[in-house]
């Protein structure tokens, strides 16, 4: 299992992965059909259906780990804002994660930070997609 997880993370992080879209499609279909922790095959290799952030949140629930993931979420969200694609709820989720740390609820904090980081990553992806495809809905 561990090995599979590592591959997923590596793939998700590689920005110039040649067949990104079809992997993405396979990933999303399997995720939609089977939820988390499902292993599927794509182009002869095995992958699992966990998001990068779910992998990051699957660490020991300590204060240090929670703060670390919150910092990552903040940085990603800043990146999303810089390209103009920050989502509405992300900032609030990060605040909630910080409150959870204060309350000593590190598992909750990790999950919230993971969600916020996922939102941010999706916003950045949306920006990249928009750069290429925005014209598709312009009437000609």
């Amino acid at each position: 299992m561990k090995k599979v997880i590592a591959i997923t993370a590596a793939l998700a992080l590689a920005p110039t992965f040649a067949a990104a879209e079809s992997f993405q499609e396979a990933f999303e279909m399997n995720r939609a059909m089977h939820g988390k922790n499902h292993v599927f095959e794509w182009n002869g290799n095995k992958y699992n259906t966990n998001h990068e952030e779910e992998v990051e949140a699957a660490v020991k629930a300590t204060k240090a780990n929670a703060l670390d993931l919150i910092a990552k979420a903040k940085a990603k969200n800043k990146e999303a804002a810089e390209v103009g694609f920050e989502w509405k709820l992300t900032g609030g989720i990060i605040k909630d994660a910080e409150k959870a740390v204060e309350a000593g609820e590190y598992r909750k904090a990790l999950d919230l930070a993971a969600q916020a980081k996922y939102h941010s990553r999706m916003g950045i992806q949306q920006h990249a997609y928009a750069q290429k495809h925005w014209h598709l809905s312009v009437p000609q």
Binding site: F85, W87, K88, Q126, S137, P139
Partner: peptide, 20 residues
């Protein structure tokens, strides 16, 4: 123009999705 036609946000909607 680009802002108007680009999909964005958690709902992945552009202005055009609703107003065109």
């Amino acid at each position: 123009k680009k802002f108007f036609y680009a999909k964005r946000g958690q709902l992945n909607l552009s202005c055009a999705n609703c107003h065109v």
